[in-house]
């Protein structure tokens, strides 16, 4: 059973049977991603944790009305997005909020050196390459790479077309590739390919 199936199954158990155990699992599976996403919008992990907690409180309270939700993951991301916007608007009155004003520190990711055959130096270069991209592009890269969202799901969340998601992701991938290529010495490349 994939992670996505598990989320769907747990979400259904919560809505149909008020299953508290499924609810706990659902929270544990999704809290990290949603908190990082929210933190990028509101600029604070502390606040983000409360926002995500509020989203899950709402899920428990309204669970019987949520049976018809087809995609729980997207639903929870959208709830988190909306509540994060609301919180931000309350805090900084009159200021327009948009996904171009993200705190990209909160959503930064980098290759895991423990599993990868790359040096800390290369990992840093890759990270820097991604950080040089526009905020929205960084978010798309993260949502796909780290959170495992599909093009269509990212599109729904960011209110853009799946095609745009695809194009933005290709830009990010190219950037990463360039960073690796520029850095990779002939020897390193050689040693890597010899191992294959």
């Amino acid at each position: 059973m994939t992670n996505d199936d598990l989320i769907r199954r747990n979400f259904r158990s919560v809505c149909e049977a008020g299953d508290m155990q499924a609810y706990d699992e659902l929270y544990k599976t999704l809290c990290s991603r949603l908190i990082h996403f929210s933190a990028a919008v509101v600029g604070s992990f502390h606040l983000a944790e409360e926002i995500v907690s509020d989203v899950f409180i709402m899920v428990w309270q309204k669970r019987s009305q949520l049976i018809s939700i087809e995609n729980p993951v997207v639903y929870l991301y959208i709830c988190t997005r909306n509540l994060s916007y609301n919180t931000l608007q309350q805090q900084r009155k009159h200021q327009h909020t948009s996904l171009d004003n993200l705190d990209t520190d909160a959503i930064a990711i980098s290759p895991d050196q423990e599993h990868n055959m790359i040096s800390a130096e290369v990992a840093q270069k890759i990270e820097a390459a991604i950080r040089s991209l526009p905020a929205r592009c960084q978010l798309i890269f993260r949502l796909v790479k780290q959170d495992g969202l599909k093009y269509k799901e990212v599109g729904e969340l960011l209110e853009i077309s799946p095609k745009t998601v695809d194009a933005q992701l290709a830009i990010a991938v190219k950037k990463v590739a360039e960073a690796i290529r520029l850095d990779m010495s002939a020897e390193l490349a050689q040693s890597y390919f010899l191992r294959q």
Binding site: C31, S32, I35, H36, A39, F45, D105, A106, A108, I109, S110, P111, D112, H115, N116, M117, I118, I126, E127, K145, Q146, V173, V176, A177, I180, R181, M184, A189, Y192, F193
Partner: peptide, 17 residues
């Protein structure tokens, strides 16, 4: 090599859970 890196697991820079 790029493909290898991109398809492996990455980690959060801040507040990994």
């Amino acid at each position: 090599y790029t493909k290898e890196i991109l398809t492996q697991g990455w980690k959060d820079k801040q507040k990994p859970f």
